[in-house]
């Protein structure tokens, strides 16, 4: 159950998308999201969808795993969809029942909103599925490095992110183990009212925190032993550099954005 969470999961591969510079992918995601919010018509949405499906196909990420990652989103999607369907005023009424009125405009709007969220999340998944978390943090660090001038701890932030990503699976596994151990001592995690449920979490959270602090302490010592002393004078095994692939990607991204903007200017 807990193990099924696919947060920040990386699928190693060697596709066109895998080989792109992480900075390119990050920037492309920004462009893609911007385009999603500008897009208003069937044509532009269709274009974006074709682009997205193309990317998934090129990346060779099994669509199943994207669908599985979407599961926790179902509630939000349904909520957004329903809200938009009911709350949008419109002229072409399809169903009218008591105070509920479903219009053509509402259904279309709801559909677009759901599509927008779906495509946004899928795009983000595509980034995390095809980019190792290390490359991702390296990319972020590099993109944000101009902010160092403002004394923003960019290196520290990316190091923190890297360690967090490293330890999430470990801590999830640990939570599972502690839950089993407390259940074996008769802890009841399923039944009871809200207050009781919150109370039942104590025997899980305390050991988890204690263990997380112990791990943090040991990790800090181990890092010191490996000569970690902050970002200063640090080199990287993998240097980031843009290649022809990235140029192609930027070109495609630019075309996509331009097309969506043009379409929306012409009201399409």
């Amino acid at each position: 159950m807990l193990k099924d969470i696919t947060l920040g999961q990386y699928f190693p591969g060697n596709s066109f998308i895998h080989r792109l510079d992480p900075r390119t992918k990050l920037l492309m995601l920004v462009v893609y999201i911007a385009a999603l919010f500008i897009a208003k018509s069937w044509i532009s949405y269709g274009m974006m969808l074709v682009f997205l499906i193309g990317c998934i196909a090129i990346s060779r990420i099994p669509p199943k795993s994207i669908v599985r990652g979407m599961k926790p989103m179902v509630v939000i999607l349904v909520f957004t969809g329903v809200l938009n369907v009911f709350m949008t005023a419109g002229e072409t009424v399809w169903v009218e029942f008591w105070i509920i009125k479903i219009t053509k405009e509402g259904v279309i709007r709801g559909f677009f909103m759901v599509m927008r969220i779906l495509m946004l999340v899928t795009g983000t998944f595509l980034l995390t599925y095809t980019t190792s978390p290390i490359a991702l943090t390296d990319g972020l660090e590099s993109l944000l490095s101009p902010l160092k001038v403002l004394h923003l701890p960019v290196h520290e932030l990316s190091m923190m992110m890297c360690i967090a990503l490293r330890f999430i699976p470990t801590l999830i596994e640990e939570t599972d183990k502690i839950m089993s151990a407390q259940k074996a001592r008769g802890a009841d995690l399923e039944n009871g009212n809200l207050m009781e449920k919150v109370k039942a979490l104590v025997p899980i959270l305390i050991p988890l925190f204690v263990s997380a602090f112990r791990r943090a302490d040991e990790l800090a010592t181990a890092m010191e032993c490996r000569c970690y002393h902050g970002g200063e004078g640090r080199t990287k095994m993998k240097l980031l550099h843009y290649t022809l692939l990235d140029m192609v990607a930027f070109f495609v991204g630019a075309v996509l954005l331009a097309a969506v903007i043009t379409l929306s200017v012409f009201g399409l």
Binding site: P133, I134, R166, P169, R215, E218, R226, C227, R234, K236
Partner: peptide
């Protein structure tokens, strides 16, 4: 508690990088 990175080779590189 002594492995920093979540790819094996990146972790091995941690020391020399420092």
């Amino acid at each position: 508690n002594q492995i920093v990175a979540n790819v094996v080779e990146e972790d091995v590189a941690f020391g020399p990088e420092n």
